[in-house]
Write a protein that binds this DNA or RNA. Structure first.
Lengths: 156, 156
DNA sequence: TTAGGTGCAAATCTTTTGCAGAAAG
DNA sequence: CTTTCTGCAAAAGATTTGCACCTAA
């Protein structure tokens, strides 16, 4: 945890930015909620619990800055708000999302399935991939089970 | 063209909706700009050229309706506006985008590279894919060339 | 001292909604 | 008639910006 904060601090400083208390509080919230995809408003409310004096604009500015520095990933699931995800150190790429259109649940896959495709893009299209986004919409395992209950035929 | 309008008309009518002149004008604009990814505002301005009396709210409502009927695809590239794409009849899936972070250009790949992955999702995660979204950000072929000019060393 | 940061409030921008009237079956 | 649809204007919600003050190298 502290190590990761330190790393962000160095990243910021290398570009002439400071890790102010507000920024640190924001990063901590992101760190503590790494599993979620928080909106700016979410982050704001969580930061406020510990640093009540912080302003929403500062949170926006911090998230924007972190986004530019590729510390967080700014995403859009189509619900009208931007959501922010801390980037795992090891994982230069964004993870993929499975969004269930029935129950709205969202899970993630960390596997990086796209490397072969990215190599192909480079070869065939001359396009050098820096990042990608891949989301799937469909029916999750749970809903699939509910839809098709066990085939214990009670029929004629 | 007329055939596709007719088809939309039938889709709408099958759900009790009408293909009003405004809706038809909107669909025509989408049809004429199938290559682009128009925002609601874009569509509005294009429709206005031929039907100046139309209101922006109507365009939004129409796009929303078409989106629900899966006639268009509502997308989000993270630039703060929703964009709309007519769905090709043949192509149940969304195409993929290559977005250049240097010049901002966007091109598309129509190949469906994800079928193997989708089968794997079904097998390994029990997740039935209905649709997907895949976008790549990176450096396009053109910018790659500009960045690395021919190695005619004009040396020391 | 100077550039970077902050909080607040106002402004901006996209999208949605309420409403009264028009159109169509 | 009754339902669907429309344009307009107002509202809502998310994000950005102007500004005066603050803070650390």
């Amino acid at each position: 945890m502290e190590a990761r904060i330190e790393k962000v601090k160095q990243q910021l400083q290398s570009q002439g930015y400071k890790l102010t208390p507000q920024r640190e509080a924001t990063v901590r919230v992101l760190l503590e909620n790494e599993e979620d995809h928080l909106s700016a408003e979410d982050v704001f409310m969580l930061v406020k619990e510990k640093s009540p004096e912080i302003g929403l604009a500062t949170v926006y500015r911090t998230l924007e800055l972190l986004s530019e520095m590729h510390v967080v990933e700014k995403m859009n699931f189509g619900d009208g708000v931007a959501r922010y995800d801390l980037r795992a150190d090891s994982n230069k790429h964004h993870h993929h999302h499975l969004i269930c259109v029935q129950c709205g649940s969202m899970s993630e896959i960390m596997e990086d399935w796209l490397l072969p495709l990215e190599e192909r893009l480079d070869r065939e299209y001359g396009f050098t991939v820096l990042d990608h986004r891949m989301d799937f919409q469909g029916i999750c395992a749970k809903c699939n089970n509910v839809n098709k209950p066990p085939e214990t035929d009670s029929g004629t």
